[in-house]
Simulated assay, not measured.
Amino acid sequence: MAGNKFKAGDLVQLKSGGPTMTVEKFMQHNESYRCTWFAGAKHNREDFAEEAIELYSDDKK
């Protein structure tokens, strides 16, 4: 069932790389996760498909 892989507060990252993001919530209407992150002082928020993100890990480098 979609929406069970990540929970609010989990740190995630795009599978292709990028900034560490925090999951805010699962968006039922489009079956995606609302994530938030900062790029410098700019606050960003976007929805991502479950298949596009994974739990953040320090060992990815």
Rank of each mutant, 00 (worst) to 15 (best):
A52V: 03
G9C: 08
M21E: 00
K7C: 04
V23N: 07
G40W: 09
L55T: 02
C35H: 00
G9A: 10
Y56Q: 06
R45G: 09
P19C: 10
E46T: 08
H43F: 14
M27Y: 14
K25H: 03
E51M: 07
A41L: 14
E24S: 04
D59E: 10
E54G: 04
S57G: 12
M1Q: 08
E51G: 13
H29E: 14
G9Y: 06
N30D: 12
A49N: 08
V23A: 09
A49G: 06
N44Y: 15
M1T: 09
D58R: 02
S57V: 09
G40F: 10
G9D: 07
N4C: 14
A49I: 03
Q13F: 06
S57N: 15
K7R: 15
D10R: 08
D47R: 00
E24Q: 06
R34P: 02
L14D: 09
Q28D: 11
E24A: 04
A39M: 14
E24I: 03
K61Q: 12
F26S: 09
M27W: 13
E51Y: 07
W37P: 03
S16G: 14
S16N: 11
Q28L: 09
V12E: 11
K42R: 14
A52W: 02
N30E: 10
T20H: 02
D10C: 12
G18P: 01
F26L: 07
K5N: 12
V12R: 10
V23T: 12
M21H: 00
S16Q: 14
K25G: 02
T36E: 15
F48N: 04
Q28G: 05
N44R: 13
A8D: 11
M27D: 15
G3K: 01
E31Q: 06
G18T: 01
T22G: 04
E51L: 09
A39P: 04
T36G: 14
H29S: 15
Y56F: 15
A52Q: 05
S57Q: 15
D10E: 11
V23M: 13
A49K: 14
K60C: 02
N30C: 12
M21V: 00
D10M: 09
E46K: 06
Q13K: 15
T36M: 11
M21T: 00
D59H: 04
F26Q: 06
W37Q: 05
E51F: 08
E24G: 02
E54W: 01
R45S: 15
G18D: 00
M21W: 00
P19E: 13
D10Q: 08
S57H: 14
G3M: 02
G40R: 13
D47M: 00
A2C: 01
L14P: 03
F48Q: 06
A8H: 09
A52N: 05
D59T: 07
C35A: 01
G3L: 02
Q13N: 09
K15L: 05
G17E: 08
F6K: 13
G9P: 08
N44I: 07
N4G: 15
E46C: 07
K15I: 04
D58V: 02
Y33R: 01
F6Y: 15
K60Y: 02
E31I: 00
K25D: 02
H29Q: 12
Y33C: 01
G17K: 07
K60V: 03
D47A: 01
F6E: 12
